[in-house]
Structures are given as structure tokens and as C-alpha cells.
């Protein structure tokens, strides 16, 4: 009797095991949290050095068109205008998303509503395959196929926003598509049957019921795609031309934030202005990825289908 009572209150092997388990899993999650905080901290502290140590004005950085951090301009100020790269990054991102979205939604509709059986069976692996192709391979094909093709059509070097857009279009297509498929599948079947039973055609059902019901999640899908395009480095770097010039049209060489970073961070010396300025570009990338994240959260919260 007493022995059992004692056992009921004393720690046992099982309770010790549980302490071990908690320590292990809490440590792992803590490591990830520390990692995220240190990424944010380190990139931010490096990124603001341009403004705090080198006293470049934020406005000049965001609106200046001359990027030549090593030299001073006529007024004796360093030339760190990031506007060309900001404009190019946003251009390729938005253009790629604009082109990819209709294709992605068409493929998603084909898989969910037009040919749900064979379409999905065939296209699912196609999409997964496209996701799996590494970005350098996309860049290489862009360099050997897309750039010469544009050069042939428009003259010049062939690199530029158009080449970047085409490469990014193919790269974000699978991302947007697979998320759109999820969005459309989340619309309950009775939405469809109710609409069809009222005599609506399939297209009317798709257009007026399906796409509307799935709209918030489709939007998130597109933003996910844009986030991927905005942060993509090597594939774009291989086809964009890497000249820090304000893009005048779609087929002149220019530079994105990522391409400038990958090309030059190894050629600058830590702590100097040219290096700090590059970290500021990285900071913009970081902030934009937070913005995309926030957008996805906001839209996602509103778009939950209640059934």
C-alpha cells in the first residue's frame, strides 16, 4: 500500500525521459529562433551602416540614379543611388507575376475543374518537375536560348528586363500554379454544384463563383510567386546584363538588387562604403521579404472560407 503511494508521488524513469525530451526539442526550436533573430540583426546592422557610418542620406540612396560607391560626385558626395536596381527588381517581379498568373490559374483550373482526373495526373508531376529545376539551370537556359533570341529580335546585347522577366516567369509559374490548385481545391464542391444546378455554364461558374471564392488565396499564391521572383539571384544575374543603369526599355542591360549583390560583394572590402552600400541592398531584400510575408498573412486571415 505505502509503496504504491510513494511511487505515485516520486519521479520515475518516465518523468525523467520527458524532461530529456523537452530539453532536446526546446533547444532545437530555440536554435532556430536565435538564428532568425541573428539574421535580422546582422543584416540590419550592416545595412544601416551606409546611413549611420557613411552618412549617406536615405533619400539619396532610394532616389539616386548614380551607383558608383567608390567615387565621389561633383559635390563631393558618394554616388550610392540604388533607384535603378530597385526599379529593375520591381519591374521584373511585377512583369513576371503578370505574365505567369493567367497561365498558372489556367493550369490550376484545368487540373481542378476542366480535366480533374487526367489533367491532374499528368500536370502534377510536370509542376513538381518545374519546381525542382535549380535556378542556375534556368539561368543557363536563359543565357543560351532567351538572350540570343531577344538579341536576334531587338538587337543589342539581348540581356535586360525582358530576358529577366521570361526566366522568372518560368520560375514562378510552378509556385503560383501549385498554390492556386490548393486555393481552388479549398472551394467546397457544393459551391460548384449549386451554381451548375442553377443553370450556369462552367465558365460562369468558374468566373463568378470559383475565382471569387478563391480570390484571397489566389492573391496569396501570386504574392508567394512575387516573393520568389524578387529574391531570385543567380538566374536573373545571368541574363540581366549587370550594368547599373536606369532601365530605359526592356532590352537594355541593367541590374537588380540581387544581381548587384552577387556580382560585387566579393569584390569589395568589409567596412568600406562600397561594401556597406551592398549590405544596404541586402537590407532592402530582407525588408521586402518581410513585407511579402506580412501581405500574405493579412490576405490569408481575411480569406478563410468558412463552411
Amino acid at each position: 500500500m505505502d509503496e504504491i503511494q510513494k511511487k505515485l508521488t516520486a519521479p520515475s524513469k518516465a518523468s525523467r525521459e520527458d524532461v530529456t525530451g523537452r530539453i532536446i526539442s526546446y533547444t532545437c526550436i530555440a536554435a532556430i529562433i536565435i538564428l532568425v533573430i541573428s539574421i535580422l540583426y546582422f543584416i540590419t546592422s550592416r545595412g544601416i551602416a551606409t546611413f549611420t557610418t557613411n552618412h549617406v542620406s536615405l533619400w539619396q540612396f532610394l532616389s539616386g540614379k548614380e551607383w558608383n560607391p567608390g567615387t565621389l560626385n561633383a559635390k563631393g558626395q558618394p554616388q550610392v543611388g540604388a533607384l535603378p536596381m530597385i526599379v529593375t527588381s520591381f519591374s521584373v517581379t511585377i512583369l513576371a507575376a503578370l505574365v505567369a498568373t493567367p497561365f498558372a490559374i489556367a493550369v490550376a483550373l484545368f487540373m481542378t475543374d476542366i480535366a480533374p482526373k487526367n489533367g491532374a495526373k499528368f500536370l502534377q508531376p510536370v509542376i513538381e518537375l518545374l519546381v525542382g529545376i535549380p535556378s542556375v539551370v534556368y539561368g543557363f537556359i536563359g543565357l543560351t536560348v532567351v538572350v540570343p533570341f531577344i538579341r536576334h529580335l531587338f538587337g543589342g546585347t539581348g540581356s535586360g528586363i525582358l530576358a529577366g522577366t521570361i526566366v522568372l516567369f518560368v520560375m514562378v509559374l510552378p509556385t503560383i500554379t501549385s498554390l492556386s490548385v490548393d486555393a481552388l481545391r479549398a472551394v467546397p464542391t457544393y459551391f460548384r454544384s449549386a451554381s451548375l444546378a442553377l443553370g450556369a455554364t462552367r465558365f460562369q461558374t468558374i468566373y463568378k463563383v470559383l475565382l471569387r471564392a478563391a480570390m484571397p488565396r489566389l492573391l496569396t499564391a501570386v504574392i508567394f510567386g512575387m516573393a520568389r521572383a524578387f529574391g531570385e539571384a543567380l538566374a536573373v544575374q545571368m541574363v540581366i546584363g549587370n550594368a547599373v543603369l536606369m532601365p530605359r526599355n526592356l532590352v537594355t542591360p541593367t541590374s537588380t538588387l540581387t544581381s548587384q549583390l552577387t556580382t560585387n560583394i566579393g569584390n569589395t572590402i568589409m567596412g568600406t562604403l562600397p561594401n556597406n552600400a551592398l549590405w544596404s541592398l541586402a537590407l532592402i531584400l530582407l525588408l521586402m521579404s518581410l513585407v511579402f510575408n506580412l501581405l500574405i498573412r493579412c490576405i490569408g486571415k481575411r480569406g478563410e472560407i468558412k463552411s
Binding site: 504504491i4 516520486a10 520515475s12
Partner: peptide, 17 residues
């Protein structure tokens, strides 16, 4: 109450219970 022990107490080893 089980065996004159309140087993709904935080001190109790639930695995033994």
C-alpha cells in the same frame, strides 16, 4: 482519490497513475 492519495494534484507522477 486513489489509495488514499489525491491523484489530481500537480505533485503526482501521472505516468505511475
Amino acid at each position: 482519490m486513489y489509495r488514499n492519495t489525491n491523484i489530481n494534484s500537480p505533485k503526482i507522477n501521472v505516468y505511475e497513475v
